[in-house]
Design a protein around this nucleic acid. Structure first.
Length: 507
RNA sequence: UGUAGGGUAGCUCAGUUGGGAGAGCUCUUGUCUGUUAAACAAGAUGUCGCGGGUUCGAACCCCGCCCCUACAUCCA
């Protein structure tokens, strides 16, 4: 049973049992802990309910009210529970249409948008003139009665009785019309308020929560790896450097993997999750200079184990988003049927076979460039491959020469690396890269020398091969690329609140 | 870094033989008791990216620079 369904069942039991109980917030996805808000009577009856051990696996906390919120404030996401009641909404004016003696303000409060109705005849003159003078994004506190109405976007309306204007906003730059990319990016701090961006970033929070829930509930331990690092992890890609006190240069982390190989030896199954920095001068729709990456590392795992983990992990995230954020996906007009097809098993494609596929594509005239065995795939190649399948495709065993120094060579064909790239469907490119790590000291030393890396920078890493070396592997998933695919977004810059890109550091 | 396209009103854009700087939206005012990016009427808005050149005359042609976008290289 999915966690969300279980919660829905429990919530319905509560609603049947307790008249005095009221619910707020969003419980989706929390299978062990539910927080309820009840008055004193409800509190006592809840205690009795749980003493009968009907839901012993659920840890319930009861408090008198939602923390951090005034008792007199109602969030727009909760209005369906307040039909017929007089409520107070604290928020901003999203947009306003008027028609003579009628004004329809659209009010947003971060949790949703509700349409208000102001009849000139039914409100004091001050309220009417206050609304007449309101500009887009003015901050307001609105009082009114909730009513279900088919004509309203969202299905519920607020019959406004009173308004308090905190500030009449200056002319708001982002109008409900078309805007160009540059203008919107310059106003990213305001753009976040608009519907589509709100939906996208709500899904992002859901994806991140799913990532944490997945690893936390599958025996992984969170190990935060450092952001200041002494030298290149992989050598090839460019790093951001910062002054580290006198005479020392530190580099911003481009991966936590090498450190997680150490923590995996200490804790078995680990993951790190944090910002990652790459100073690559690439400006494409798939690149950020600062992005979030989650990297699991598993002791005694081989390449097949890692592929199975990646497949199960991606499926979990897709299911969670479909279950909890369907409204947001609809809001951004995502073709959900494409996501509903994401079920294991994912196709596993050997590099050799992928190359054959690309060459056939070229012969058929479906692919412009001629691909030669031995190279890494370019972006058009990845797109071509991923379009052959309706679910993520796992390409494994690339030539060792095009991959990082720490990859374990295939014992059956030493020229291949035991690695895997997961290509998202619909041309969204590589969302996961990983594989099995080289565990032989002599081989690693040879690789470090051949890649021209400083051996002394890796002395601690090489220690892991001296003191109980072990087979292990893992992968890294870029949150933003995964997001772009899940949400069907053209450009990765919309999947993070404040994107950092080549030539963009502000706002 | 390379290739291609672009920079004109607050926003989105049109503007060719080189000669009067424009449209829609936003905004302001007015009409309308159910608007859905409301509609209708009237009004306001400019360093044509910056610098130089050609010309009687440059948004338009030439040179240099700046900025943006897409793609490629790189990668998640």
């Amino acid at each position: 049973m999915g966690a969300g369904k279980g919660d829905a069942m429990i919530l319905s039991i509560f609603k049947d049992c307790f008249e005095t109980l009221f619910f707020k917030g969003d419980y989706s996805g929390c299978s062990r802990f539910i927080r309820l808000f009840a008055d004193k009577s409800g509190h006592r009856r809840l205690a009795a309910f749980f003493s009968r051990d009907r839901c012993s696996r659920i840890n319930v906390l009861t408090v008198d009210k939602e923390p951090g919120v005034n008792m007199d404030q109602t969030y727009i996401r909760d209005v369906s529970e307040h039909v017929g009641e007089e409520i107070t909404i604290k928020g901003w004016l999203y947009n306003q249409r008027s028609s003579g003696k009628l004004i329809f303000p659209q009010i947003r409060d971060g949790s949703g948008i509700i349409q208000g109705v102001v009849f000139k005849k039914n409100v004091p003159e001050r309220v009417w003139t206050d609304f007449e003078g309101l500009t887009q994004e003015s901050s307001i506190i609105v009082r009114g009665r909730v009513r279900a109405d088919e004509r309203a976007p969202g299905g519920y309306e607020l019959d406004v009785s009173d308004v308090e204007v905190l500030q009449t906003a200056e002319a708001y730059p982002i109008t409900p019309k078309e805007h160009g990319v540059e203008f919107l990016m310059d106003h990213r701090h305001l753009w976040l308020r608009s519907r589509r961006q709100h939906a996208i970033l709500t899904v992002r929070a859901e994806v991140i929560r799913a990532v944490r829930d997945y690893f936390d509930s599958n025996g992984f331990l969170l190990m935060d790896t450092p952001i200041f690092t002494p030298a290149a992890c992989e050598g090839t890609t460019t790093l951001f450097s910062v002054d580290y006190f006198e005479d020392t240069t530190a580099y911003l982390a481009q991966s936590g993997q090498l450190y997680n190989e150490a923590t995996a030896a200490a804790f078995g199954k680990v993951y790190c999750f944090g910002p990652t920095f790459r100073a690559e001068k690439s400006k494409t729709r798939r690149h950020l200079t600062e992005f979030w990456m989650v990297e699991p590392e598993v002791a005694y795992a081989d390449l097949d184990d890692i592929m199975e983990l990646a497949e199960d992990f991606i499926t979990f995230i897709v299911h969670r988003v479909l279950e909890n954020r369907r409204k947001e996906l609809d809001e951004m007009e995502r073709d959900i049927s494409r996501l509903e097809k994401i079920e294991p098993p994912f196709p596993r494609l050997q590099y050799d076979d992928a190359v054959r596929m690309l060459q056939e594509g070229h012969e058929k005239g479906e692919l412009e460039s001629q691909f030669e065995w031995g190279g890494d795939f370019g972006s058009p190649d990845e797109t071509y491959l991923s379009n052959r399948f309706d679910r993520p495709v796992m390409v494994h065993r690339y030539p060792a020469a095009v991959k990082a120094f720490y990859m374990k060579p295939d014992p059956e064909r030493a020229e291949l690396a035991l690695c895997v790239d997961v290509l998202a469907p619909e041309g969204y490119g590589e969302v996961i890269g990983g594989g099995q790590r080289a565990d032989d000291l002599a081989y690693l030393l040879k690789q470090i020398h051949e890649h021209g890396l400083p051996e002394d920078a890796f002395d601690w890493y090489l220690d892991l091969r001296k003191y109980g070396t072990f087979p292990h592997g893992g992968f890294g998933m870029g949150i933003e690329r995964c997001m772009a695919w899940l949400c069907g977004i053209e450009h990765i810059r919309e999947t993070i609140p404040f994107p950092r890109m080549l030539y963009r550091l502000k706002p």
